[in-house]
Design a protein around this nucleic acid. Structure first.
Lengths: 194, 194, 194, 194
DNA sequence: CATGAATGAGAGTTCATTCAT
DNA sequence: CATGAATGAACTCTCATTCAT
């Protein structure tokens, strides 16, 4: 029990170190030795928990992606109206990107870079289904524009990633007003104009 | 003169090879030796044109970014109405992302990764000024929402990058209808609703 | 007693695993962890039975060498005539090399490689004494050529190792006829021609 | 020209260092770094001449094997009588094993160990053909026993390897008399007794 | 007696960069 | 101007060995 607990701690420390270092340096500029050092273990220890570097970053990706979607849908349920449901999910996503920006930055880098294996990428995408279901419902009810899910995602969700990055780079600070404005832009880009 | 010409060819070949290889493998998984091979020069020759690897990728970034903005504004002039100007620029940007997707992909990877030096990033951003000017005009005329430029960019332009990536990954194909729909979403997210 | 029994089983399993893995991969390409796995024990357990890797392989060598010589002389006794005695021993050795080829291969690899410590090598050689005694008797009786024991061994015994190896590699299959021919060659190379 | 010469020198130095170190320590106990040091080059330089460690040792093997057979047949021609031809070749082989014992030891280790790739092993075996041709001639003429080539090799040639090893270990010194005795044993083991 | 977890040291290999030509 | 050869430094990963349990 004590042993097992300790193991999970080390695994978590490794995942955390991976996120931080990859965020700052990129995948290939992050040596295993630095990850080990930051996690306070020997380089060899990493290989007790992960097969190799690719496996480490893949598993990190999947874990962060799962945390992301879990957070996004935590307060949502399918009985909400489309507009309310979207608002709730959108706000939670915005929250995640701002409050857990380390995690969110990591996902952005993974999603825009050839550093994640294709299988892990697909694995990570699965958890978004509830949002796609919500949109389908909206389309049927004539509330959401009848667009491809990719287009809806591009306009309703993806801009938040961009905003998070520029904020992280210090060029700009997102405050509550901006969030509200962003939400309005998101909603107006996908809702059916009456 | 002949010599100089030859030099420019080599430089161009190096830039091109860098783009292609970084697109497929990422910055740090792209060795100088491969770049040299693809450009049909010796590794040592790279250092006649660029200071080091960072300089090579920085200069590549700036050159591609300049080509991008040049393309974006090629048919625009400041006497156009705000709506017309935006439409023209937006369509040119969409065009660039689809037709010159190698270049566009490269920019996306640079912009979402810590691989470009901060100075080069700033250097690359300057050329977008005409679009910001257009938006300012639109705000004054009450046509564009009075939002931060970052927000406008996030909703009006950035989604195109996302769409280009998913298309590149083969998950989705953008046709003319999608482009038109995307434009409508972009415009409705930043225009003032009357 | 039960505990001791269990220990001997583990020790034997370790020796057996060592032989098999070293045969297939060589000494240094055989990690302790694989030996442990094949013997169904923990890597740490090996160190309860052996001081270190060198000790493990040295003790394995001595054990196999002892088994080899024990087998060779099992049906021999010193009252036999020189020719009969040699024939009996030679046939037993041939038998061992063919029937216990795993063990025999292991000895060959040890004897042609710097993997065994010098002391263990000397330790292993001692058990051959009865054969040397037989030869000395033969020399005195004028039946065996008055050659150095090394020469006698080289021609009378060592060829069997070579034949075993080529057979193991699949290039060639030794049948009863071959064995008889080999014996004739062995004997004619050391007996005094009349 | 000067460049090319220098390259060949380095390659030769690497081959030589490989032989010496593998002889003393075995394949897997010979790190590339030591080979590099002994050859007075950087570890990275090895990879300009060989693909990897396996390739280095394979190519070394083939080169030494070629030198061995070249030496063996240098003074032989097919018009010699079978007995004379065999004697000449046998003596040359004995010479090689004693005078170029580093090379010969290396071959023995390669041939009794799973360190050489199967393809290289086969490549190395080809050059022995003239000896097999000689034996075939001898069999037809009724001078050589009608045995498998493997048996002939086991008794006529292979004992020399054993003798070389024990001499190298210092247990025994081969002088001219021994060589003559060994030759007689070799010849009597394969010739047809009249 | 037996272990799984942990690790320091070192393995093979790659690569950005330099330099003699 | 252009190069192929060379390399030191750093990379990922393995392994013999130890130790708390």
């Amino acid at each position: 029990m004590a042993k097992l607990q300790k193991s999970i701690d080390k695994r978590n420390a490794l995942i955390k170190a991976t996120i931080e270092l990859v965020n700052n340096n990129g995948f290939h500029a992050t040596p295993m030795s630095k990850i080990a050092k930051m996690a306070n273990v020997s380089p060899a220890t990493i290989y007790l928990y992960f097969d190799n570097k690719q496996d480490l970053v893949d598993k990190t990706y999947i874990e962060v992606k799962a945390a992301y979607t879990h957070y996004a849908f935590a307060t949502y349920n399918e009985k909400m109206s489309v507009e309310e449901g979207f608002k709730i999910v959108w706000k939670r996503i915005a929250d995640f990107k701002l409050k857990e920006s380390e995690n969110a930055m990591f996902l952005v880098q993974c999603d825009n870079t050839p550093m994640i294996s294709e299988t892990s990428r697909k694995e990570g995408i699965k958890h978004l289904q509830p949002l796609l279901d919500l949109w389908n419902r909206g389309k049927k009810e004539g509330i959401i524009k009848p667009l491809s899910d990719y287009l809806l995602y591009a306009y309703a969700i993806n801009p938040l990633s961009f905003l998070m990055i520029v904020q992280k780079r210090g060029a700009f600070t997102l405050d509550k007003t901006h969030i509200e404005e962003a939400y309005q832009s998101a909603w107006s880009s996908i809702k059916v104009c009456k």
